[in-house]
Computed example of a mutant assay.
Amino acid sequence: MAGPWPITEKVGNSYCVQLSASVKVHSIFSSDKLHWDPNKPLSEQVPDSPPPIEVNGELEYDVDEVIAYQMQWTEYDDDPE
């Protein structure tokens, strides 16, 4: 089965896909069965974050946002220090 097949609607936690008439399967799929377009991912299909890098023997993380002088680290447990 080749694609891409356009998504026509969201049905609960699944998606209805517009298939050609020659494809004889149910047209509603769970998001884990669909491959995402890197330019338009589904809300449940977020690309994995890159791993932290090591600098001088310590792990470095990207800062997601600064909240009241505390850092919200990407892919790291909450820690106010």
Rank of each mutant, 00 (worst) to 15 (best):
M1N: 06
M1F: 04
M1K: 07
G3H: 08
P4N: 03
W5Y: 11
P6C: 09
P6Y: 01
K10S: 09
V11E: 00
V11G: 00
G12Y: 04
G12T: 06
N13M: 05
N13C: 05
S14V: 06
S14W: 00
C16L: 12
C16H: 05
V17E: 00
V17F: 01
V17Q: 02
Q18D: 00
Q18G: 00
L19F: 04
L19V: 05
S20Q: 10
S20M: 11
A21I: 09
S22A: 13
V23H: 04
V23W: 02
V23G: 02
V23Y: 00
K24V: 03
K24H: 00
K24N: 02
K24M: 01
V25L: 01
V25Y: 05
H26C: 05
I28T: 06
I28G: 02
F29R: 00
S30L: 01
S31D: 14
D32R: 08
D32E: 07
D32H: 09
K33A: 13
K33F: 09
L34R: 03
H35L: 12
H35N: 10
W36A: 14
W36L: 13
W36T: 12
P38F: 07
N39R: 12
N39G: 06
N39M: 03
N39H: 08
N39I: 03
K40T: 03
P41F: 01
P41D: 05
L42I: 02
L42S: 10
E44C: 04
E44D: 03
Q45P: 07
V46N: 04
V46S: 02
V46C: 01
P47Y: 08
P47C: 11
P47A: 10
P47K: 12
D48F: 11
S49Y: 06
S49W: 04
P50D: 15
P51M: 15
P51T: 15
P51R: 14
P52N: 06
P52K: 05
P52D: 06
P52R: 01
P52S: 08
P52V: 14
P52I: 12
I53M: 09
E54K: 11
E54W: 13
E54A: 08
E54L: 11
V55T: 08
G57W: 11
G57D: 11
E58G: 04
L59D: 08
L59E: 11
E60I: 14
E60G: 06
Y61W: 13
D62T: 14
D62P: 10
D62I: 14
D64Y: 08
D64L: 08
V66Y: 10
V66E: 07
V66L: 09
I67C: 10
Q70T: 07
M71S: 07
M71P: 05
Q72R: 15
W73L: 10
T74I: 13
T74Y: 03
D77N: 11
D78A: 12
D79P: 10
D79Q: 15
D79W: 10
P80Y: 12
E81L: 14
